[in-house]
């Protein structure tokens, strides 16, 4: 029992370690003092200041656009790739496909960013596309490594799917494409939502890849935050961080709760 207690204590401290920094970030976002970490009374003025900061608002809008588009593209690619990997058995280029969807997961971001930028530059001089860099190129970059995450999420769900429900649909007269839309897709719905949300949040968070592949016009939110915090802590960033963390957490928790509910129903 003692051992079990010390083990639990370690785990508890681990969770404190995970959450203490986030908590302090949130607390100090309500600090009236400009010194951020020296408490000067409760205030919401930094939230008000945030809404006046055109640079941050613009960047947030860019990031949101990029995340929406890249999450959608990545989910489509991930669905196709995971379906092919889970359902087609052996086919030519299988190795290549499975390698290409798993490698981006562990590839250092600086390498992905640099190599994609070089590709875009080379393509532009070769075929004139993409003309310049900006939102489009960031979307392509995010969709590419996002597709890898989407494939992993969807693949594990696809693997645990009872194949006989697809066969049953086909047996009852549904063409393969019909089977996919009638049976496979509804069964995948929770995983599709997770995959989309995951890519969305990763895209929203990415600094490194976006810094490489962006052009003069487009600064994403992480790029603006990074340039601000390199100069030191800023209470405005704390307020922004609080908003981002709280809203993402809320969405994730609601999604997880919904999914658990539907999971409980299907069993």
């Amino acid at each position: 029992m003692r051992r079990s207690f010390s083990l639990r204590m370690t785990a508890f401290l681990g969770f404190v370690f995970l959450y203490a920094p986030i908590l302090s970030l949130i607390i100090f976002s309500f600090n009236a003092s400009k010194l951020v970490t020296v408490w000067g009374g409760f205030s919401t003025k930094w939230y008000a200041a945030l809404l006046q900061d055109q640079q941050i608002l613009d960047a947030a809008w860019v990031s949101l656009k990029v995340a929406l588009m890249s999450a959608t593209i990545a989910t489509v690619i991930g669905t196709l790739a995971s379906y092919a990997l889970a359902r087609f058995g052996r086919f030519p280029a299988r190795m290549m496909l499975s390698g290409a969807v798993t490698a981006p997961l562990v590839m250092p971001e600086v390498i992905i960013g640099l190599s994609l930028l070089l590709l875009f530059v080379a393509l532009e001089s070769l075929v004139g596309w993409p003309a310049g860099r900006g939102v489009d190129t960031i979307v392509i970059a995010h969709a590419t490594f996002g597709a890898a995450y989407a494939t992993v999420v969807l693949g594990s769900r696809m693997g645990s799917l009872d194949r006989s429900i697809e066969e049953a649909a086909q047996d009852l007269g549904a063409r393969p494409i019909r089977v996919f839309f009638d049976v496979t897709l509804p069964a995948l719905a929770p995983a599709l939502i997770s995959a989309w949300l995951l890519v969305f949040t990763i895209s929203l968070d990415d600094l490194v890849v976006a810094s490489f592949v962006t052009g003069p016009g487009a600064s994403t939110l992480p790029m603006v935050i990074f340039s601000k915090v390199r100069l030191g802590v800023s209470p405005e960033v704390n307020a922004l961080a609080t908003l981002i963390i709280v809203s993402i957490s809320a969405v994730i928790l609601v999604a997880a709760w919904q999914m658990q509910k539907s999971e409980a129903q299907s069993h």
Partner: peptide, 20 residues
């Protein structure tokens, strides 16, 4: 002839009812 074009039907061991 693929399954969806056969006038045969099958009852699956797991029943394979569409859960949704």
């Amino acid at each position: 002839v693929p399954p969806h074009k056969r006038d045969t039907n099958m009852m699956f061991q797991s029943y394979a009812l569409f859960p949704h």
